[in-house]
Design a protein around this nucleic acid. Structure first.
Lengths: 137, 137
DNA sequence: TTAACTGCAAAAGTTTTGCAGGTCG
DNA sequence: CGACCTGCAAAACTTTTGCAGTTAA
């Protein structure tokens, strides 16, 4: 975790931007939560620092994503969920019925990515891949 | 197209629901547009029948999906796009840069679905699969 | 006729924005 | 000190809901 925060500080410094507590706390929240919606992230940050505003969370998420530290997917019904870019070593199986999210090996989608690259000249970003369906319940 | 509308009428009758012009027009719009957001569908319907309200479009989409005639995915930034269930014979390649949506053979994802079924006991719905990435530009 | 459906308007939920004040560097 | 950031409030969107009037069957 402190690794991520240090990476953040470095990335910010490099761009002449500021390392504020809020930005660090948003990143820390993502690290703790694994993957979460802006709302959930705000809840986590807010617990430690009640003055932090939801709009600041949105702005921080946008920035963190721009810096390449974080990325997001649309898991279920359009709800965006954010996670560490470095942790994006799995794809998501989203159950339509129970809403559960299971993680699966990224490597199992490699063959698919290869076919897509070849036939469509399209570079698939597997870290953004989520497969919808029905789990074993 | 009239095929779809007839299927709609039949499905509605079977459930004791009503075949209204609005419902038919929403379905027709989806047929013409291929895939479209609620907003775009409303635009299309509205052009022919200006009195149709957006909330009616939402209600119709919900119903059509329930009847299994239509389904939706979240293509790009969470924007829901609806399409005929019968046309869902392809998966989507969504370009992060230009926003374009390319269609690819569903069959190329079969092996992936098989692995997921075996390892995770998860039945993948490939018709809801969209792959994000970068196209050839 | 009458239960289902629609249009309208308002509510609810989410994300963005303008601005005055606070703060990192 | 000075530009960058934040909190707040309001705006901009998207989707849902309640209700009175309309309409398909």
């Amino acid at each position: 975790m402190s690794v991520s925060v240090e990476a953040l500080d470095a990335a910010l410094r490099e761009r002449g931007l500021r390392a504020t507590p809020q930005r660090r706390q948003v990143l820390t929240a993502i690290v703790s939560l694994g993957h979460a919606t802006p709302e959930q992230i705000h809840g986590h940050v807010h617990a430690r620092n009640p003055s932090v505003n939801l709009s600041t969370v949105y702005r921080a998420l946008e920035l963190l994503e721009e810096l390449g530290l974080v990325s997001h997917t649309h898991l279920d019904h359009g709800a965006p969920t954010y996670h560490l870019a470095a942790h994006a070593r799995h794809l998501h199986l989203v159950c339509r019925h129970c809403g559960s999210v299971t993680e699966a090996e990224l490597s199992i989608a490699r063959p698919l990515a290869a076919v897509i690259a070849e036939r469509h000249r399209f570079t698939a970003d597997l870290t953004h891949l989520s497969v919808h369906g029905v789990c074993a319940e």
